[in-house]
Amino acid sequence: MTFTLTVSDEVRALAPGFTHVAIEAYDLVNGPSTEASSALLDDATRRLATRLAGRAPHEDPHMAAWRETYTAFGAKPSRTRNSAEALAKRALSDAGLPRINLLVDLYNAVSVAHLVPVGGEDLDRIQGGMRLVRATGEEDFVTVAGGAEVVEHPEAGEVVWCDDAGVTCRRWNWRQGPRTRLTEETVSGVFLLETLAPMPVAEAETAGAELAELVQKFSPGARIEVCSPVSARTPA
């Protein structure tokens, strides 16, 4: 990888079953959602329904593991769901999945189909490397409320992604800030897939490979690098 992405020892101790797969992509072509990206989201919803077989998303073992981890750092998982559970819940509702833009549609489709939290960051907007840490509570998180930019601060001990400018995503993968999100002007990005035990590392690899293939298909000239899964799991 050409940028640094680190997970703190405190986070690894909190969640020894954590694994992440990162995909760097350059020379991307993004734009509005298309019929093809919308069809991917519809197919992901069908795959999700098959996977759950009538269960609620939070009853899936992987989602249950995320709920336990959220509780461990002080979040209320029924109120602040991990990104995959929140998307899955919406996918199965009358509202259905949102159509954001082409790149976001691709990673949301993979997230829902595999029940894996997936995020995307604009590499040109990240300052320094990305770090997954437990917050002190003093960090800045710039977001938008009521149409105006506001600065929030995470709770002490909360797990956050951050860069040199501040927090980029609160409560692990619950809410991304607007500063680094993928927009229709994005040309360089990193996609991050995050899993916990009991999901096998091989499934994280499969989901990552699917996303990389989709990005390549929709941006044929893109340069893509998939980083091997980085795991905090204790070897068997």
Rank of each mutant, 00 (worst) to 15 (best):
1 M>L: 12
7 V>I: 15
8 S>P: 09
10 E>L: 15
10 E>H: 13
10 E>S: 15
15 A>I: 02
16 P>F: 06
17 G>H: 07
21 V>M: 09
22 A>W: 04
23 I>H: 14
24 E>F: 08
28 L>I: 10
31 G>A: 07
31 G>S: 07
33 S>H: 02
33 S>T: 11
37 S>L: 08
37 S>W: 05
38 S>L: 10
38 S>P: 10
42 D>H: 12
44 A>L: 10
44 A>G: 02
50 T>V: 10
51 R>V: 00
51 R>Q: 12
52 L>A: 01
56 A>I: 03
58 H>Q: 14
58 H>Y: 15
60 D>Q: 04
61 P>G: 13
61 P>M: 10
62 H>Y: 04
67 R>N: 11
68 E>S: 13
74 G>L: 06
81 R>F: 04
82 N>F: 15
83 S>P: 02
83 S>V: 04
87 L>A: 13
87 L>S: 09
93 S>A: 14
93 S>C: 11
94 D>G: 08
95 A>Y: 11
98 P>V: 06
99 R>Y: 12
102 L>Q: 09
105 D>M: 14
107 Y>E: 01
108 N>G: 05
109 A>H: 03
110 V>P: 00
111 S>I: 04
112 V>C: 03
114 H>K: 10
118 V>G: 00
121 E>M: 10
121 E>W: 13
121 E>N: 12
121 E>T: 06
121 E>V: 11
122 D>K: 02
123 L>H: 02
129 G>W: 01
131 R>M: 12
132 L>Q: 00
134 R>V: 01
135 A>P: 03
135 A>G: 01
135 A>L: 09
136 T>W: 11
138 E>I: 01
139 E>H: 09
139 E>A: 11
140 D>Y: 03
143 T>D: 15
143 T>N: 13
144 V>P: 07
146 G>H: 06
146 G>D: 07
148 A>W: 04
150 V>T: 09
151 V>M: 12
156 A>M: 09
158 E>P: 07
159 V>K: 00
162 C>M: 11
163 D>E: 07
164 D>Q: 13
166 G>M: 07
166 G>I: 10
167 V>G: 06
170 R>F: 09
174 W>S: 02
176 Q>C: 10
178 P>M: 11
182 L>K: 00
184 E>T: 08
184 E>L: 02
186 T>A: 14
189 G>K: 01
193 L>I: 03
195 T>Q: 08
196 L>S: 06
199 M>L: 15
199 M>V: 05
201 V>N: 03
203 E>V: 03
208 G>W: 11
208 G>Q: 02
209 A>W: 00
215 V>T: 06
215 V>D: 07
216 Q>C: 07
219 S>A: 07
219 S>Y: 01
219 S>T: 05
220 P>E: 04
220 P>S: 04
221 G>C: 05
221 G>L: 09
222 A>N: 03
223 R>L: 10
225 E>C: 14
226 V>P: 05
230 V>C: 14
233 R>N: 04
233 R>K: 10
234 T>Y: 09
236 A>I: 02
